[in-house]
């Protein structure tokens, strides 16, 4: 709850950082003020979480792996606001330290999956017939495998490691992005001014770069926070299943993996890190929704874009899949 109290300052930090000089700051501030409440709340929440995750450990200074066996499984109290775990470590400090790996790894996962999705989506919209078929097929294959199962295969082969974790997250997330990119690119490509460019001889690559990409990018920006939220959840899930960040280096998911053994005696061990994931993901969703609304849509729209393909083609197209 302390996180929400600092909201007013936190929000300004985010708004100000994106623009440098005074005028830019003012403009950003008024833009920020014009956003929906939920977007502002999301920004404030995220700013607070970032501040606590990256600044908290420095201020607190306590070592998250410092064990004190006499403090075995203490319930939350003023001395240990989140309680302690089975080896007497302070849970608050572990949750604060766990934020950094969770956030950093998720950021990489987000960037990777967006990049891959963007490439495949554009390829599906602009490649030749062969490229379209191949990408459609690859999407099918990816969709047919639950990411947990993919992870099990990969971890079986290569053993758990952080680069592999990022790879698994990319594999888990790119299809969503690819679907949206393809569908927007196709829609854009069918507009008259783009067709006109093709008629006067612009090459396919040029059309993709000059005409279609600029209208895909804003959607990507709106998608990024949503993708980040999804990555956070996936990272936590894989770590919870023992395929991600390993103890003793805590991430939110792996703290909960340890906590699971004490579910019937120490509720706080899973509840607080879970709340941390939930609040972070929620703040990102609120931000994503705010971006979307700036574009005149809502989260419903992003998620419906792929399903909307129906309108053009009544056959049961799974978005991203290219029908011959």
């Amino acid at each position: 709850m302390a996180e929400i109290a600092s909201s007013a300052d936190g929000s300004r930090v985010v708004a100000a950082r994106t623009h440098g000089p005074a005028l830019g700051t003012l403009r950003a501030l008024s833009w920020f003020r014009s956003r929906p409440r939920t977007f502002q709340l999301g920004c404030a929440l995220l700013a607070a979480i970032l501040l606590l995750s990256f600044g908290g450990p420095i201020v607190l200074g306590s070592d998250p792996s410092e064990q004190n066996l006499s403090d075995y499984l203490l319930a939350p109290s003023p001395a240990h606001p989140f309680g302690t775990d089975a080896t007497g470590r302070d849970l608050l400090s572990r949750v604060l330290h766990g934020g950094r790996p969770s956030l950093v790894i998720s950021t990489f996962g987000m960037l990777g999956s967006i990049l891959l999705g963007l490439c495949v989506g554009m390829l599906a919209a602009f490649g030749g017939r062969m490229a379209q078929r191949v990408t459609g097929f690859v999407v099918d294959v990816q969709l047919a495998l639950p990411y947990v199962l993919v992870a099990i295969v990969l971890v079986s082969v290569a053993g758990a490691s952080i680069p592999l974790l990022v790879l698994m997250m990319v594999l888990a997330g790119w299809v969503q992005v690819g679907r949206v990119v393809r569908s927007i690119a196709l829609r854009e490509r069918s507009k008259d001014y783009v067709k006109a460019a093709a008629v006067v001889g612009a090459s396919r690559a040029r059309i993709a770069r000059r005409y279609v990409l600029p209208s895909v990018l804003p959607v990507i920006v709106a998608l990024a926070p949503l993708q980040m939220a999804a990555m956070l959840v996936i990272e936590a899930t894989l770590s919870f299943l023992g395929m991600g960040v390993r103890p003793p280096q805590p991430s939110w998911g792996s703290i909960m993996l340890e906590g699971k053994n004490y579910i019937d005696s120490a509720w706080w061990l899973t509840t607080f890190p879970g709340l941390a994931i939930f609040l972070t993901a929620l703040s990102l969703l609120l931000i994503g929704d705010g971006f979307e609304r700036a574009e005149g849509g809502s989260l419903d729209r992003v998620q419906s874009i792929a399903a909307d393909d129906q309108g053009e083609n009544l056959a049961p197209v799974i978005a991203g899949r290219v029908e011959p």
Partner: peptide
């Protein structure tokens, strides 16, 4: 919708265990 998206399945499972079974 937002809550369902932000809540990892495994955590929701743990919370459900916590509340409805423990």
């Amino acid at each position: 919708a937002a809550a369902g998206q932000a809540m990892p399945t495994f955590w929701l499972g743990l919370v459900l265990i916590q509340v409805f079974s423990v």
